[in-house]
Design a protein around this nucleic acid. Structure first.
Lengths: 250, 250
DNA sequence: GGATGCATTTGTGTATACATACAACGATTT
DNA sequence: AAATCGTTGTATGTATACACAAATGCATCC
């Protein structure tokens, strides 16, 4: 969500976008619900022009879809949609890893990734892992994924991965906090970290297929977390964008 | 590029978008060149509000990027960017084919795809293949790919494939017309059609990995065409969005 | 000649008025 | 009672004015 840094203070457009996004993610605006411009003007306090722009941006982000008769509607996502979105991201990250491996990456370019790996190793060395450590993991994990994506040196792919990761539940750390409530929380982090380790090794050794395969499997950890969290039905508050997820009575 | 059908006649926003897109693809607006709102107002004849919306849509489409100081700039694409974009699309279509194979598709659902396949077979039976036949192939090929994407029954993936295919050179038929000028034109079509045949077979037989692999290889035909066309240096007029492609002196 | 400050010009963000299209409701006709 | 038509209200598309920020040009000073 890199926005150009033209707004010294928060612009009305960004203000409206943030407010609307919050309403969507918190459930104030429910899936399937129609949003009209004028309604959004009232709830955000911005005037129509920035509201229109904000609505289009949120459409682009994936939270809204345009209605033929005008206006926008909050999207709903099935469990399948979410797991597909995660697998999609994994597929793209796998491609990024393969590109990196095939095209070669210098030791210097790999250094930030290895530092990130080491920092995560430090985190995982504490037993049991604290909630704050989970929070730190989220940050480091996001950084790891961002660095890996950049290694592809493919602007079109980087752009597509950013888009594929835009929704909260599709991001690399989408379910880590929800995971923290699970009994096997630490085990899953350890497995995920092993994937990080393997992909670095694969890239270093120019093993494209291996790099791709491990990142695709890596994404499936998030799918597993999703399933566990939905089955568990406790700590659902930790699920990102829970309000957008259709219930299984669909 | 499905736009909601709210505009009985062409709206000013769409008019501006079409005009700007044309200027970009024709080279009137060159890669790297900055577009200001007011300039776009002059060249499109629409007023600022629809022009702004059009610029944002074109950014989303991938033809423009926002400049930190304001305004937009026409993107330039290297040969690598284009081949990466094609491979990206192939990877996503491969995933769609795998989903279809894994989840199962009824014979009825496969029928339109088979009809498309048969129509392309008809086309390819003429020797040598005429230019009009190439044009018909483009239409049928696009239809084939759209039908295949829908078979995934994964809205997030369908959306991502549409986006990945938005730029002219990244679409499934991006280089077919340029290909028509090559000596081995018909051979490449025959090979591409074989891929079509194989992916249907793979889906029918629930062979997910095979379906995925063949679609990924299928996309590489377009990469081959790109390379041939750029090396050949004749009939460059048939290359989509040639104006956006950086020269090899980069 | 180079640096700085000020004034002017240009461009973007925003607000709002006007025009048009669509949806909803009530009255009339079949 | 159901269908149709006309009117009214609501929402969207567009145009444009105002406010503010950034860029440019010019004059002055060191």
């Amino acid at each position: 969500m890199a926005e150009r840094e033209v707004d010294r203070s928060v612009s009305q457009t960004v203000k409206a976008q943030l407010a609307l996004r919050d309403q969507i993610l918190s459930g104030s605006l429910r899936p399937g619900e129609r949003i009209s411009e004028l309604q959004a003007v009232e709830t955000t306090g911005a005037s129509r022009t920035p509201v229109r722009m904000a609505l289009v941006r949120l459409e682009e982000e994936g939270l809204l879809e345009a209605i033929p008769s005008g206006g926008f509607m909050v999207k709903a996502f099935s469990e399948r949609d979410i797991s597909d979105s995660i697998e999609l991201r994994g597929t793209l990250e796998g491609l990024a890893a393969r590109f990196a491996a095939e095209r070669g990456v210098s030791a210097r370019e790999l250094e930030p990734l290895k530092e990130c790996l080491a920092a995560i190793d430090d985190l995982l060395s504490q037993v049991p892992i604290s909630i704050e450590a989970f929070s730190s993991y989220v940050t480091l994990n996001a950084r790891f994924h961002a660095l890996l994506t950049e290694l592809s040196r493919s602007p079109p792919l980087i752009r597509q991965i950013d888009r594929a990761s835009a929704l909260p539940f599709a991001s690399p750390s989408g379910f880590v906090m929800a995971q923290s409530a699970l009994p096997e929380a630490q085990q899953i982090l350890i497995i995920g970290q092993e994937h990080h380790r393997v992909v670095i090794d694969a890239i270093e050794n120019r093993e494209g297929a291996r790099a791709e395969a491990v990142m695709r499997e890596h994404a499936r950890l998030a799918v597993r977390n999703l399933r566990l969290a939905l089955r568990n039905r406790t700590h659902l508050d930790l699920l990102p964008a829970l309000a957008l997820i259709k219930t299984t009575t669909d």
